[in-house]
Amino acid sequence: MSFILFIEQLLNGLQFGVMLFLMAAGLTLVFGVMGLINLAHGSLYMVGAFAAAATATATGSFLLALIASLVFAAFAGVLIEVLVIRRLYARDHLDQVLATFALILIFSEGTRWLFGSFPLFLDKPDWLSGTVNLPFGIIYSRYRLAMILAGLAVAAGLFWMIARTRIGIRIRAGENDREMIAALGVNISLLHTFVFALGAALAGFAGALIGAIQSVQVGMGEPVLILAFVVIVIGGIGSIKGAFIGALLVGLTDTLGRFLLPWLFQFVMSPSSANAVGASLSSMSIYLLMAGVLLFRPKGLFGSQ
């Protein structure tokens, strides 16, 4: 195993983690402010990817496709918040899980009805194709590097908004005491819609970015959703900082685990069984990480209560 390969895998882990953060940020905000478990968050990721693919096919522009992913995902977010989610804030978590699971089915079959069952095509633009040469002779995909930068920029913007702006203050206040800020004259229902739309737009943006190097298909959001839940549990539910650290931890653990575990097992067993055992164990690695974190920090790394 070479140093260059290890650095490249670190970058891969970072890229995966940053994209997970875009998903987890919305999920953790919605849980923190509204106390809502939103299983349909993965569907918003899918909406973003499909909106981007359709726009890119129609206009040929990747930037327009990214904008479309933000707009359509935010719009879908507002729509389900006003029509369905709003009625669930006061209900218990089981009702929320049930209703948002129904939304997954509605979104999946609705998307199939609109776009058909076959995967759509979405490609990165020419100016982001190919590879770049980094120091130490590392060859890395230009698009993945752009994903890391875009993700970090969004994360920085989000931290700034939460920490420094009036809307950020309201969001933090909403997390601490919902009734009190409503009593102080903040339009809590508008704030909820805004937070939900923000989370939806971030998920849609992630879907569009990832859709360009993966398969844009019905049901693409659910595997990512599970990882995003792992992220917010590790990070501490409701904490943006926790979501960021948790996403990077999960991204690095998953990527490095897939690569290092089979390699490590080769020292104690034959290559083919090392592969099989390593592959099986690495798919568990993030859950082991989660169990480990919860053992010492039952509320997650940055859990508030």
Binding site: L5, E8, R144, N275
Partner: peptide
Amino acid sequence: GEIYTKLGQTDYASEIAQIRA
């Protein structure tokens, strides 16, 4: 090299890096 990936896996950056190396 010989790798078993996870069924349903969508990101292959790690595997591709190993192929390169």
